[in-house]
Amino acid sequence: MTAKRILFLTPGIIFGIIAIYFAVGLTKDPSQLPSVLINTPVEQFQLAAIKGRANADRAWGLENTDFHGDVALLNVFGSWCISCKVEHPFLMELKRTSDVPVHGIDWREEDPDAGPAWLKREGDPYTLVGDDPDSKGAIAFGVTGAPETFVVDRNGIIRYKHVGPLNRDIWVNAIYPLVQSLRAQ
């Protein structure tokens, strides 16, 4: 009798387990990919400077060694990217109100003048900017879409990744506390 009861319950139990898996799996946002690069060093890369932002002392606009020394943010943007325009005022606010350097990767500009023109029009919140027309920098950071923002510690280790526009909520609750604890280390 009990064996028979177990037999009758089995399909229900299997259905329940599958239902739980689906309930978890299907409600995840597939565009929010987990980054495998958290807690790994920034890969070696070198990006040219964008027009009008050439550094007098060197040929490169942004390279991996720029992340050594101080905790810094890396923001991947493009003049073609609408969400980047949404987050841009907050980046300008950060430039005024915080002492955390924000570096930029100007990703996939078809026209090399488009990025510099965009920064001239909207304001330039970046400490250093690298031009990334062929995704070399973006792939080094495992970027899938713009905007994405990374927190890199003073030893050049990636500590945090945010996909989508940056805003005050994420800054206050996640990024700023992390930057403070990384600086205290």
Binding site: D134, I139, T144
Partner: peptide, 23 residues
């Protein structure tokens, strides 16, 4: 392809897929 996730980079016309193919 990380942009259109059910395509391979060989099939996808996304810019990132093109850059990955070149890589």
């Amino acid at each position: 392809c990380l942009v259109c996730q059910n395509q391979s980079i060989d099939d996808s016309d996304a810019q990132l897929a093109k850059d990955l193919r070149l890589l």
